[in-house]
């Protein structure tokens, strides 16, 4: 739907400026996931959103992240806009090894970062290799 709108726009007088749909800049809600031994980090692009316009909920092991601009914003209608939507919703399935009780979120420069710690790995333990000389 979004692509067809853009492709129709190709026939408009601004054809060249919009000719390469696939090089759009990630867009609202674009996601990166970074993992370390101790936690997983989810980063979402949410340019223009204030903290009170964003919502994060835990539902059945999923993180539901959504945002919508306040209707009382008082902003005028733009004469031109490439923004695809005034809101977004992303559902992130959390690995069972993540501890959902540890989720914390930060918003800075239009990027929402969610950090979730890994549970202590009960099944993994280090086993020391004994030298044959030490085995009785």
């Amino acid at each position: 739907m979004l692509c067809s709108t853009r492709q129709s726009a190709l026939r408009r007088p601004f054809q060249v400026a919009h000719s390469t749909v696939e090089t759009r800049y990630g867009g609202l809600g674009a996601l990166s996931i970074i993992e370390t031994d101790s936690h997983s980090r989810f980063e979402l692009d949410v340019a223009g959103f204030h903290a009170d316009e964003l919502s994060i909920d835990l539902e059945d092991g999923h993180l539901v992240v959504s945002g919508s601009h306040r209707e009382t914003d008082g902003r005028e209608t733009p004469i031109y806009s490439e923004r695809q939507s005034l809101g977004f919703r992303r559902i992130l399935r959390l690995d069972k090894k993540l501890d959902v009780a540890t989720v914390r979120a930060e918003l800075a420069d239009g990027v929402l970062t969610l950090m979730v710690a890994r549970k202590p790995d009960a099944e993994r333990r280090h086993i020391e290799i004994r030298n044959s000389e030490t085995v009785v």
């Binding site: 759009r24 004469i79 031109y80």
Partner: peptide
């Protein structure tokens, strides 16, 4: 009211614009 968007080269990403 404003004029045309000037064609960009294809090797750059194009962040979204909104004009009031």
């Amino acid at each position: 009211l404003v004029g045309d968007l000037v064609p960009d080269t294809d090797d750059h990403a194009r962040p979204e614009l909104t004009i009031f």
